[in-house]
Amino acid sequence: MTSAAIFLLVFLLESGAVRSLQPERDRASLLYPYGSDEGDRKTPKLDDGTSPKVSLSVPFTFYGKKHRSLYVNNNGVVSFDARVAQYTPDPFPLADGRPFVAPYWADVDNVLGGEVFYRETTQEALLERVTENINRYFPTVPFAAAWAFVATWDHVAYYGSNTNKGNTFQALLTSNGETSFIVLNYWDIQWTTGAASDGDPDTGLGGTPAHAGFNSGDETNFYNIPGSQSDAIINITMTSNVNVPGRWVFQVDDFKVTGVPTEAPKVADISNCWL
């Protein structure tokens, strides 16, 4: 790389402008509907806060165990059994046995910016769309969605931020009463780390980066999305295991990964992609 190319790359990474160089995507086709117009609730404007305990009308099976309640945690985690206020992610598997899915576990601060939405739903139009998606990605698994839970982190800021950077990502849990799936959608990822996790308050990078994956709670079974807890996680909007950039889909009652996961390019390799 020339010195000019290196300068441009650093500028793009630090400014968050790298996302504008990604392949064009359709927001509406990636993200499931969310927000106040959909009847969503919001988690409190509280650093390291969580939703109240959400009782589910349909049990959700995760790694073979049925759960009847969950929490939506501001720091990018949907957890069963207990809240997760921890802001610096630990590698999976966790020694303390907490079962949860981490769409993007990092130090979110919705006091500084953004909202965290969630709802349980049996809306017919959404269930039809979810069913169509799952049938496409898992054609050998008979499935018709009867229930869904949608959690969306909308342009959320990072702790200690000196910028207006925000991340938008989503987790959808769905079940037919027996078989369960989780869809993770990543629309816009502009930061990886909060200042309390040794990140740079001016960039939202460095320190201990975000973690994305699944922890069963039995200290043995887990899955880490490629790029987790590395600088490459900022490129998760370009990766997938179902050939849809920014989307990862998993059968989680008896955990399975479909397709061939694509790895996020390393930050050092971004120059080979675009410059």
Score class of each variant (00 low, 15 high):
G49Q: 05
P93I: 01
G97K: 07
P99V: 11
N75P: 09
P59E: 08
F60S: 03
N74Q: 06
L70V: 00
P89L: 07
E115T: 12
T43W: 03
P99K: 06
Y71R: 09
P33Q: 01
P93V: 02
V78A: 03
N75Y: 06
A82G: 12
N75V: 10
L94M: 12
P93H: 01
L56F: 03
P93M: 01
V116T: 14
K42F: 06
K42M: 08
W105D: 00
R68D: 15
W105R: 06
G49N: 14
S69W: 01
Y71V: 06
S36N: 11
P91D: 10
G64L: 10
L70H: 06
T50L: 00
D40L: 00
D37W: 03
Q86D: 15
N75F: 11
S79W: 02
F80D: 09
P52N: 13
V54T: 03
P103D: 04
E38C: 03
D109A: 13
Y63V: 06
V101F: 10
N74M: 04
G64R: 05
E38L: 02
K65P: 08
L46H: 11
G76L: 01
A106I: 05
V58S: 09
N75D: 15
G97P: 09
W105L: 04
H67E: 14
D37P: 09
P91F: 08
